[in-house]
Structure formats: C-alpha cells, structure tokens
C-alpha cells in the first residue's frame, strides 16, 4: 500500500508573530519553524497504517516548501517514513493554495498513491483548503477533520470518524482517498535515535517546478493581501469589577459576547 503524508513547514505555535515594517508580511527573524502540528498526526497515521498493513506498504512524505524544510522532512523520516518528495522552487515563495495544490497534485500523481494523509489546516495561513482542492484535482473523495481512521479488511475501503459541530460523523469511503487529520487522531511518536541516524540516509527526492513539467509557476495568485494587522486585543487582563458580584458577572457576559465573541 502506498501511503502519502503531506507536510508543511510552519512557524512554531509559540513564535512571536510580528508584522514587518513594510506591512507586507511577518518578521522572519527569531522564528522557529516546525512541522505543522496537524501534519504530524498525518505522518503518524501513515506510519500506523503502514505497520498495520505491513508487507510492502510504504510511507512517502510529500512537501512543497523552501530548502529549510529539509530538516523537518528528516524528522518525519526519523519517525519512520520511508522516503520523501520535496518540491522546492523559488517560484513557490509566496504560495497560493491553488498553486501549491496544483504542484502537489502533479508530484502526487507522479508518485502514485492509495491513501493521502494531511493536516486539517496549516497553522500559519490557517486556510484549510489544500486537501479539498487536491481531492478535486485528483478526483478522489475527501474526509476532513478525522479523529479516527480504520482500513477495511479488503484494503479497498476505510471508515473515518470526523469531527463536526455537536458530534462526530462516521464516514465510509472508498480508496484512494485524502484524509485530513485532527488533534486526537493519534499521539505522534518521538523519533528514536536509531531512527534519526537512519533518516540521514533515506532518500529525499528534490524536485523543481521544471522537474514536475511546469514551464512556470502554475497559475497566478488568485488573491492579494491588502494589509497585515496585529491582533485586535492588546495583552493584559481586563479586571471586571462592580459593587455587586451580579453586575460584574453581567458585564463579563457582555464582554464575552460582544468583545471576545466567544459565546
């Protein structure tokens, strides 16, 4: 079984995100990059499926990203993935979901697959679109926000649980399929040291757009970011005070609804 796991390099969740002086993006300095959290679940689920199916099953990591993504791909290889495809091209510097999806689709088609795991969204642009666009481009079914995955005995179908508002849905799907992973699906493993050592020798197939058969970047950017803005709320705690506790609570409820918009 050929299993693919998609991987994106993103700033750590703890990184201080500051908008650059020109207002055209974020300051890169001081930012630590990590494997997108949800993609780790994808790699892990791929590995588990490989272990379960055994035999000739392989897990291939597919990544479109800058040169620096290599070390993160190595991390996934250290976890146990067999090899990787790394699409690395200057033309992908300011990516658009459609451009990335087109590039990935090409690479994936060349690679062949039975199942693709990916994160439900990347924690940088938080778009959550790639997997569905890819599914459309590859003409395969998609199951998003998976919290459980099980392959049928015949290895031609799978049962996936996905998170929706107010509960879970059980989805039966045929293979090939793309499954986007949610927290709770699994606990990604910590690479062992022999795993890290072995990963140094595993193959990462570097591809440029030309290698994939693109004469130029596939398609134009479909959107323009007009401006970058800092988060609305400054840090610091608003102490809600009133003579009567009830009034303080009333004010808190108002703030939660009108200012924070969380209830």
């Amino acid at each position: 079984m050929k299993i693919l796991a998609l991987l994106k390099r993103v700033p750590d969740t703890e990184a201080k995100i500051l908008i650059n002086q020109e207002g055209t993006g974020i300051k890169d300095e001081g930012i630590k990059y990590v494997i997108n959290t949800y993609d780790e679940y994808a790699v892990e689920e791929g590995l588990r499926l490989k272990e379960k199916t055994g035999g000739t099953s392989t897990v291939t990591v597919v990544c479109a990203g800058p040169e620096e993504a290599t070390e993160l791909i190595r991390t996934a290889l250290a976890m146990g993935a067999d090899d990787a495809v790394h699409v690395c091209d200057k033309a992908l510097e300011r990516p658009d979901p459609f451009v990335i999806a087109a590039v990935l689709a090409k690479a994936i088609k060349a690679e062949g697959f039975d199942i693709i795991f990916c994160g439900k969204q990347a924690i940088d642009d938080d778009m959550g679109q790639i997997q569905s666009i890819l599914a459309e481009m590859l003409d395969i079914p998609q199951v998003n926000v998976a919290t459980a995955f099980e392959l049928a005995a015949d290895a031609k179908r799978a049962t996936v649980r996905r998170r929706v508002e107010g509960g879970d849905e059980k989805v039966e799907t045929s293979l090939p399929v793309i499954v986007s992973c949610e927290k709770g699906l699994n606990d990604p493993r910590y690479a062992s040291l022999p795993g890290i050592m072995k990963a140094k020798k595993k193959e990462i197939r570097k591809k440029t757009l030309a290698d994939l058969g693109f004469a130029q970047a596939p398609g134009d950017a479909r959107s323009t970011i007009l401006r970058w803005l800092p988060p609305q709320k400054s840090s610091g705690c608003t102490m809600v005070k009133a003579e009567e506790t009830r009034d303080a609570v009333k004010e808190l409820v108002r703030l939660l609804r009108e200012e924070a918009k969380v209830v």
Binding site: D12, T13, E14, A15, K16, G30, K32, V34, Y190
Partner: peptide, 15 residues
C-alpha cells in the same frame, strides 16, 4: 519537544 523547539521544558516561546 519543547526543549527542542523552544529550549525550555514548557511550551513557551524562547523569544
């Protein structure tokens, strides 16, 4: 993981 990424045992940004 926190030690690897943010150089401290808690998940607090190194910066």
């Amino acid at each position: 993981k926190n030690m690897e990424v943010n150089y401290n045992p808690w998940a607090i940004g190194y910066s």
